[in-house]
């Protein structure tokens, strides 16, 4: 009962904000700050007025979201796999981290958008470059967290594995990785929100499809309601991804949440 009430109270803030926003923008009357009702209208016209068979999404929505989400998920997945693999190697192979640390710290400090011109030269213009930007930008949280996680495996867990003579594969797959999983998931979650940002950035710079490109196009056509609609879209996508990720995390790491609660 109390939880239900607090849920309702929390959601009060949304309509209140929208009404305030509407009033302020109408009073200001600036073309750069259209009221939310116009933004919503534009959002609907552009993307949500499609046929039921496409879940109301317009063709334009499918053409815009498809490539972007594809790049985002592909880039995030590649970064995740590479980050976990490298992180495990750095965390488990003694000395390796010491040798590679200066190089990694240097690479990590580079802002990924600045590397776009270099990626243009290395890869073709288009999806490969965008993927490279995303992977390079979002691999770090996964890599760093995985390294930390596999280093922090409880000594007791490893001693048990040694006494019972687990194979190297079993030690990695059934002891080290599960034990590091809470940290790895924290890294993956951070990477996901970064991936959304880098997806847009990479599409702003050199692309002829996707949400970023579409945003740029709206801006160049002085369609400010359209620009705002894109911003709202990115916010909604961010919320959605985070929610989906938390559901997945809850399933995979239920042991972790429960184990901590019971200690």
């Amino acid at each position: 009962m109390r939880r239900a009430t607090s849920g309702v109270l929390r959601f009060w803030i949304v309509p209140v904000t929208l009404v305030l926003w509407e009033l302020l923008t109408r009073m200001a009357g600036s073309p750069f700050f259209p009221p939310p009702s116009r933004i919503a209208g534009q959002f609907y016209d552009m993307w949500l007025s499609g046929p039921v068979s496409q879940l109301l999404l317009t063709d334009s929505a499918l053409d815009t979201f498809g490539p972007s989400l594809g790049r985002l998920l592909a880039g995030w997945t590649i970064a995740g796999v590479l980050g976990i693999a490298l992180g495990v190697a750095l965390g488990r192979i003694r000395g390796l981290a010491d040798y590679t640390d200066p190089v990694l710290q240097f690479l990590r400090a580079l802002p990924p958008p600045l590397l776009v011109p270099i990626f243009f030269v290395l890869f073709k213009v288009g999806t490969p470059t965008q993927l490279a930007v995303i992977v390079f930008g979002v691999i770090w949280p996964v890599l760093v967290n995985t390294t930390d996680g596999v280093r922090a495996v409880d000594k007791g867990f490893l001693e048990t594995a040694r006494v019972f003579q687990f194979s190297r594969y079993d030690i990695l797959r059934r002891v080290i990785l599960p034990s590091a999983m809470p940290k790895i998931f924290a890294g993956l979650r951070l990477s996901l929100s970064l991936a959304l940002i880098l997806m847009v950035v990479s599409e702003l710079v050199g692309s002829n499809s996707g949400i970023g490109y579409s945003l740029l196009y709206a801006q160049q056509s002085y369609d400010y309601a359209g620009v705002w609609a894109h911003i709202v879209l990115l916010g909604v996508l961010g919320l959605l991804f985070n929610a989906l990720f938390l559901v997945a995390e809850g399933r995979v790491l239920s042991w972790h949440a429960n184990a901590r609660r019971n200690v």
Partner: peptide
């Protein structure tokens, strides 16, 4: 081996 500290010997996952 049966260790004293079962919480660090049984895998919670």
């Amino acid at each position: 081996v049966v260790f004293q500290d079962y919480s660090r010997s049984l895998y919670p996952w």
